[in-house]
Design a protein around this nucleic acid. Structure first.
Ligand SMILES: Nc1ncnc2c1ncn2[C@@H]1O[C@H](COP(=O)(O)OP(=O)(O)OP(=O)(O)O)[C@@H](O)[C@H]1O
Length: 700
DNA sequence: AGAGTCTCGGTTTTT
DNA sequence: CCGAGACTCT
C-alpha cells in the first residue's frame, strides 16, 4: 500500500527556532564542517561577518547555512543570497541548490543587479516608474549618452570633447563611488578637467533623458531600488519583511550603494551575513571598496566575526606560492593560509618562445590530462583580458576540445546582432531612438541626417511605424514603407517570439549581406544560432531584459553546440573566475603590461589590485598550476619584440616553483594527429644547482 | 549637403 | 576588431 506524506506548513513566526527540528542532521553539519565553519552555519540570527582567505570554505559555509536554515523550517523564499558577479551568483545558487531539495528553487537572489531589476519590475507602478521600462546595457547607455551629447552640441563645439566611452565611464564611476564628477575627472582624466562642468551638465541631461524615456542603466537599477527604500518606506518595509535571512558572498566586491541595499534588505529582521576576503578585492575600478567589509561590524552593531584559516582547496605547494605572492602587496594582509592536503606538484612557470608555442603547450597538455583521466570540466585557462585567448580558442576548435568561455565579447556586442536586435527592440518600444537610428541607416542612401529627420517625425507621431508616410524624397519612400510595414505587422503581438524573430531575420538578411559583404557567411551562422537561443525565451520583454542583465558570450553561438557526452573545459577572465575552482589551472599571457595591466603600473593602489588579481587566479587551482607567458610577442603594426614576464613573477624563491622548458621533437609513437612535430615538455625543478633556468638559457 | 569609403589609432577588468 | 575622422563621390 502506498503511503503519502502530508506536509503541515508551519507559519508561526519563530520559524521553529526552538523546535528540535535538527537533532540528527546537526551531526551532518558537524562532520562536514570545521568548528569555525560550523559556528558560522549555526549562528543564524543577528549580524555575522566571515572574513577568510581563498579556498577556506566561505561559499561552502554560506551554502550550508542555507541548508541549515531550510531544515530548521525557514521557507526558502525568505532567504536572500546575493553577490556581484553573474558567475559567482550562478555557482553560489547551484551549490545551495545541491545542498537541499527542490525547495531551494525558491531561494531569492542572484546578482545585485538582477535582484534589483526583479523588484523594480514588480513595484514599478508603486514608485512612479513606467512598468515597461527598458534596461540599458553598457552599449545602449553609451549610445544614449551620445544622443544627449549631440543634442547639446558638445560634439561639435570642441574638437577634444571626451568620447562617449569616456563619458560613460566617468559618470558611472562618479555614481558608484559617490564622488562628484569633477573629482573623478581629476583623478582619471586630468586632461579633461576643463570639461568637468560640461560633463556634469551632460550627466544631468542624461538623467532627465532616461527618466523621460523610461530607461534604466545598470547603475540606476541599484540607485532606483535604494531610492525606493528611502522614498517609499512602507513599501521598503514590506520588501524587507519578506527577507528574513540576507547573505552576501564576495562582500569585498560591493560598492557603497550595494552596502546600503544590504542594510535596507536586512532592516526588519536584522539577520545578515556577509562573507568575503579583502585580499581578493578586484573590483575597485567600478567602485567596489574593500573597506566595506572592514566597516561591516560598525554598520551592524553586535556583529559577530568569524575567521577561517584552513584552505581546503589547494595543495600546500600551490598555497606556498600564493601566500608568497600576496605578501608582495604594498598594503599588507595578515592572513596566512595553511593546507593539510597531501603534497602535490610544484606550480610550474612556462616560458614559451612565442604565443604559438604557448597555445600548443596548453592544447597538448590538456589532451594529455584528459588521457590521464582528468575531466575537461576540471580544467580552466584564465587570463587578464578577454581577448588573450583568441589564439587558444582557434586551436581548441581545431583539436575538437569543447570549451565554454566567460568574460569575452558578448553576443549583443557584435554589430550584426545589434542590428538584428534593434528591430526587436523597436517592436517592443517604437520610440527607441537608438534602434531607429541603427535600423534606418541600414537602408540604402540613408545616413545620419536622413535618419535624424525620420526620427524627429517618429518622436511626435501617434503611429510611429507609419514612416512610409514621412514626406521624403521618393528615393527612400519604398524602403521606409517596407520597414514600417514589417515592424507594424510584428508589433501586433499575435506572433510568437520565434516567428517574430524569423520574420525579422528574413527582412534583415539581404541588408546584412550588403553591409558585411566581406564576411557575411560567418555572421549568418551566428544569427541562425542566435535565433535558436532566442526561441527559448518567453517573450520580448524577458528576452531584452535578460540579454542586458545576463548577456550570452559570443563564443556560445560561434562554437558548435556542445556534445552532451563531455562537459567542456573553461576559458575565463580572472575577474569572472572569482569564487570558482578547478583541478588544473593554466594562466596565460602573464606578462608585464598585461598582468599588471599597463594602465595600472603607475599607481601603487592599482598595482596592488593587479597583484590581488594574480592571487585570485592562482588560488583557483586545486592541484596543478601552470603560469605561462610568451617570450616574444607579436603585435599588429609592430616588429616582434621581447616581452617581460610579469613583475609579480620575478625573483620568486626557487623552492616555490619549477620551470618548464618547451622542447620540440618529432613524435616517435603513433603519428596521431597530422604527424607534425609537437612540443614535448621537460621539467626542471628550479631549486637544483645548475638547473636554475632563466629566459636567456632557453634553447630558443 | 549628405552618403559612402578608407585609414589610423586605441584597445582592461563587470553589472 | 571597431569607432572616429578625413576624404571622395553623388
Ligand atoms: N570543512 C571542509 N572540509 C572539506 N572540504 C572543505 C571544507 N570547507 C571547504 N571545503 C572545500 O574547499 C573548497 C573551497 O571552498 P569554497 O569554494 O567554499 O571556498 P571559498 O572560501 O568560498 O573560496 P574563494 O574565496 O576562493 O571563493 C571547496 O571544494 C570545498 O568543498
Amino acid at each position: 500500500m502506498n503511503t503519502r506524506k502530508f506536509v503541515l506548513y508551519d507559519d508561526s513566526d519563530d520559524g521553529g527556532k526552538d523546535s528540535p527540528a535538527h537533532g540528527a542532521s546537526l551531526e551532518k553539519y558537524q562532520s562536514e564542517l570545521n568548528s569555525a565553519q560550523f559556528e558560522a552555519v549555526t549562528t543564524t540570527d543577528g549580524a555575522l561577518l566571515v572574513v577568510a582567505g581563498a579556498g577556506t570554505g566561505k561559499t561552502k559555509t554560506l551554502t550550508y547555512r542555507v541548508g541549515y536554515l531550510i531544515e530548521s523550517g525557514v521557507p526558502a523564499s525568505d532567504i536572500l543570497l546575493l553577490t556581484f558577479t553573474r558567475r559567482a551568483a550562478q555557482e553560489m545558487l547551484a551549490r545551495a541548490a545541491a545542498i537541499c531539495d527542490s525547495r531551494c528553487s525558491q531561494i531569492q537572489g542572484g546578482t545585485f543587479h538582477a535582484f534589483a531589476h526583479k523588484l523594480l519590475r514588480l513595484h514599478a507602478s508603486q514608485i512612479g516608474l513606467a512598468e515597461n521600462f527598458t534596461v540599458l546595457d553598457q552599449a545602449d547607455a553609451e549610445e544614449t549618452l551620445d544622443i544627449v551629447r549631440t543634442a547639446l552640441g558638445f560634439n561639435k563645439k570642441e574638437k577634444r570633447f571626451p568620447k562617449k566611452r569616456t563619458l560613460a565611464t566617468v559618470i558611472s564611476t562618479s555614481r558608484n563611488k559617490q564622488l562628484p564628477i569633477e573629482l573623478v575627472v581629476e583623478a582619471q582624466y586630468p586632461h579633461f578637467l576643463s570639461f568637468a562642468e560640461e560633463i556634469e551638465f551632460l550627466a544631468k541631461k542624461y538623467r532627465e533623458y532616461k527618466r523621460a524615456n523610461a530607461l534604466l542603466d545598470f547603475d540606476d537599477l541599484l540607485t532606483e531600488l535604494r531610492d525606493l527604500f528611502l522614498n517609499f518606506p512602507e513599501l521598503g518595509h514590506q520588501i524587507s519583511s519578506s527577507l528574513r535571512y540576507v547573505m552576501v558572498d564576495e562582500y569585498q566586491d560591493t560598492n557603497l550603494v550595494q552596502a546600503e541595499l544590504v542594510a535596507h534588505f536586512s532592516a526588519v529582521h536584522k539577520n545578515v551575513m556577509a562573507v568575503g576576503d579583502d585580499a581578493q578585492s578586484i573590483y575597485a575600478f567600478r567602485g567596489a571598496n574593500y573597506r566595506n567589509i572592514l566597516d561591516f561590524p560598525n554598520q551592524f552593531p553586535e556583529c559577530k566575526l568569524i575567521k577561517l584559516e584552513e584552505n581546503y582547496r589547494s595543495t600546500p605547494e600551490i598555497l606556498s606560492l600564493t601566500n608568497f605572492v600576496i605578501n608582495r602587496a604594498k598594503e599588507k594582509f595578515t592572513k596566512t593560509l595553511f593546507s593539510r592536503k597531501p603534497e602535490g606538484e610544484l606550480p610550474a612557470i612556462v616560458s614559451a618562445p612565442d604565443e604559438r608555442f604557448q597555445t600548443r603547450f596548453i592544447a597538448q597538455r590538456i589532451l594529455e590530462l584528459r588521457e590521464e583521466g582528468v575531466p575537461l570540466r576540471e580544467i580552466a585557462v584564465l587570463m587578464r583580458n578577454g581577448r588573450d585567448s583568441y589564439a587558444l580558442e582557434l586551436e581548441l576548435r581545431k583539436r575538437n576540445i569543447p570549451f565554454v568561455k566567460f568574460g569575452g565579447q558578448k553576443v549583443v556586442e557584435a554589430a550584426h546582432i545589434k542590428d538584428f536586435l534593434a528591430y526587436l527592440k523597436l517592436i517592443y518600444n517604437p520610440r527607441d531612438v537608438i534602434s531607429w537610428n541603427r535600423v534606418l541607416q541600414l537602408l540604402e542612401g540613408v545616413g545620419p541626417k536622413t535618419a535624424k529627420q525620420v526620427i524627429e517625425w517618429v518622436k511626435d507621431s501617434g503611429s510611429p511605424y507609419e514612416i512610409g508616410g514621412v514626406k521624403m524624397s521618393a528615393k527612400y519612400a519604398a524602403s521606409l514603407k517596407n520597414l514600417g510595414d514589417l515592424l507594424g505587422s510584428l508589433s501586433s503581438g499575435k506572433k510568437s517570439l520565434g516567428e517574430t524573430a524569423a520574420a525579422v531575420m528574413n527582412y534583415y538578411l539581404p541588408l546584412m549581406h550588403e553591409k558585411y559583404y566581406e564576411d557575411f557567411p560567418k555572421r549568418e551562422k551566428d544569427l541562425e544560432n542566435f535565433l535558436n537561443i532566442i526561441a527559448n525565451y518567453q517573450n520580448l520583454e524577458t528576452l531584452l531584459a535578460e540579454l542586458a542583465l545576463d548577456p550570452i558570450e559570443l563564443t556560445a553561438i560561434e562554437t558548435e553546440p556542445a556534445k552532451p557526452d563531455e562537459q567542456p573545459m573553461t576559458l575565463s577572465t580572472i575577474h569572472s573566475a572569482k569564487g570558482l575552482e578547478w583541478r588544473t589551472v593554466f594562466l596565460i599571457n602573464m606578462l608585464d603590461g598585461v598582468l599588471p595591466s599597463k594602465y595600472a603600473v603607475d599607481d601603487a593602489a592599482s598595482l596592488d589590485e593587479e597583484l590581488r588579481l594574480l592571487y585570485v587566479a592562482m588560488t583557483r587551482a586545486k592541484s596543478l598550476l601552470y603560469v605561462c607567458y610568451p617570450i616574444v610577442c607579436t603585435q599588429r603594426g609592430f616588429e616582434d619584440y621581447m616581452s617581460n614576464p610579469s613583475r609579480f613573477l620575478q625573483k620568486l624563491p626557487d623552492a616555490l616553483y619549477e620551470r618548464i622548458l618547451l622542447v620540440q621533437e618529432k613524435r616517435k609513437s603513433p603519428p596521431q594527429l597530422s604527424g607534425k612535430a609537437k612540443p614535448q615538455l621537460q621539467k626542471k625543478a628550479s631549486g637544483g644547482k645548475n638547473e636554475n633556468f632563466n629566459d636567456d638559457n632557453l634553447p630558443f
